[in-house]
Design a protein around this nucleic acid. Structure first.
Lengths: 344, 344
DNA sequence: CTGAAAGCGCTTACAG
DNA sequence: CTGAAAGCGCTTACAG
């Protein structure tokens, strides 16, 4: 199909002035007669003229568009973060292009290539769990396209980062379970290479240590961020000779799997097994029993990452130093972890 | 920050040939000596040269990018459909830009404007519930940017459409409830103006009629596609003097609200109230009891809409006639509607 | 206040 | 096989 649009040239010809004059009139330059401006504006309006942003991009080498890469847009944590990105981008006059990596390095590479070649002005990313190597993001940065990380960050690159206090969130969740009388607390962690997995695991371990509970390797299982992963690990855990009396899941998907598996197996929550998750469980209240969870300010993370990014884009120079913002998580207690406290 | 990239000009200068020659060598034109081609390719490789797609877009008036507008990417139905869009687009060499309307006409207008001005090659849309007027899509089409509708379609515009057999899905769901002995079947429908709402409502009514059950206005409630909407309508329905013995929800979000409200109110599913939803409830099995539902091939809808769109984009002329594809929905029975059948 | 000219990065008839 | 030139739609010093 053929595309039709009005150009500056046609307006110039119709009004018998030069393209330069039309351009100036449209951009409201000061050095133009109000009479000319009026005529140009009127005709532009009438012809429904819009400047071709592609031409402007070619000229300015700027597109007023930023990219976002997340593992999976269907994940509420990420879709909410994208909401935050759009919020800030929109209000500062930028558009947003959304990419999903599906946790695949290959897709992340393809998105990076698209971003580089389409001259997107900057990028907000939560790194795919499969991406141990992040040279593609370093390359973007060197090419002058700033990159800001959120949620899943990496030490392998100097830039702004926004994350949640995973360590503390995990520590508090674990301590809460201990306070409710649990002693055999299992942790279904995320993929091993991911930054947040390590932070959460540390928080879990340190809470055990603080309360004099021995850490047991077999009670920690790594899993993909899927319901199936949570289910399978729960089966493994409950099959152990010494079975856990609590399970702390590293994400909402995983925790949904835990919940499902425990129900299948006929365990009561919280009495047989107390359960707590990690993420913003909007749907947590739908489950029976409703699930306790460490909630994260996902929308705000998107906002902050974007605002840091736009600052980078709009500043002429590389900042003296990069910033890592650590936001607070929040412990929301529900029935799934609310055991009767027995004894001491 | 400043952007650096290699251009054709620099390659030409380094090799002491013309830009034309470099361009031809890169595009592997036939009229070029293999020696020159080799030299150019080598240097391009070494300098990490990529053609500037913005320049090419300006030239060809094509961007190899399509847009998708959905009400809400966090909704599984839409995120899955987007997966289908990406699948086809990717395999045919196109990129995808995702927009959310958040069910707001204003956001839909802003996305349409961006699409028009960025010269996106085409658009796949599920119309926002707030958009009674779709002139903005007609305008895109007239401007030469083809638009294909899926899920939420409109009669106000001639184009390809892909939808599910909502009428039949609703008919079967309602009939199933009747067969399980329900007689006072309520329907929480979607927003009034939306096409699928009407089709589903018709299916519901016709199933009642077929089985000689009188239709009652007060048992149909319109709601937004939210959990809160489903909850509130359920309260209203259960407060009626003659309360329903079954509720058929028009979407998964709504049905989640129904489920929650019934649990809060202490009704047993399916014995007090049988429940059935409409959408691909991946999470349906997580609820207790698991929810029956009319499932839709969302991924496939995205694929088909995109493949129709790309055909439009790549054909030179307007097609003789537009096509409306109606896909099959599927009834998945779970405990929430599985009542004991009493008597005949 | 207005216009002619150059240029953003590329492609492609048109000559040779 | 190669180069010079025009052009995609726009902006902006540079002259006047």
């Amino acid at each position: 199909m053929k595309r039709v649009s009005v150009t500056i040239k046609e307006i110039a010809k119709a009004l018998d002035v030069s393209k330069s004059t039309v351009s100036r009139a449209l951009r409201d330059s000061s050095e133009i007669s109000s009479e000319t401006r009026r005529k140009v504006m009127e005709l532009a309006e009438k012809l429904n003229y819009y400047p071709n942003p592609i031409a402007i991009s070619l000229l300015k080498n700027r597109t007023q568009t930023i990219g976002v890469i997340v593992p999976d847009i269907a994940n509420r944590f990420y879709s909410s973060a994208i909401g935050g990105v759009e919020d800030i981008a929109y209000s500062r006059g930028y558009h947003t292009m959304i990419y999903q990596s599906h946790e695949l390095l290959e897709r992340e590479l393809s998105a990076s290539r698209h971003i580089a070649s389409r001259r997107v002005d900057g990028l907000v990313v939560a790194i795919s769990s499969q991406s141990e190597n992040i040279d593609h993001f370093v390359a973007l940065q060197e090419q002058g396209i700033p990159v800001v990380f959120f949620d899943r960050v990496s030490d392998a690159m100097q830039t702004h980062k926004v994350r949640v206090d995973d360590y503390k969130g995990a520590f508090e969740a674990t301590e809460h379970l201990i306070q409710r009388g649990c002693r055999r607390i299992a942790h279904i962690a995320g993929p091993e290479k991911v930054s947040i997995t390590r932070f959460r695991l540390e928080g879990y371990k340190d809470a055990l240590r603080k309360h004099g509970i021995a850490f047991q390797e077999e009670w920690v299982r790594h899993s993909e961020i899927t319901q199936a992963g949570g289910t399978e690990r729960t089966y493994q855990l409950m099959a152990l000779r010494e079975r856990p009396d609590a399970i702390f899941g590293a994400s909402d998907r995983i925790t949904m799997g835990v919940h499902w598996a425990l129900r299948q197996l006929g365990y009561k929550m919280p009495d047989d097994v107390a359960v707590i998750g990690f993420c913003d469980l909007a749907m947590s209240s739908l489950l029976d029993p409703p699930v306790s969870s460490v909630t994260q300010p996902s929308f705000e993370m998107g906002q902050q990452a974007t605002s840091l990014l736009l600052d980078l884009i709009e500043s002429k120079s590389t900042p003296a130093e990069y910033e890592t913002r650590v936001l607070r998580s929040n412990l929301v207690i529900n029935k799934s972890s609310l055991r009767e406290i027995v004894g001491s």
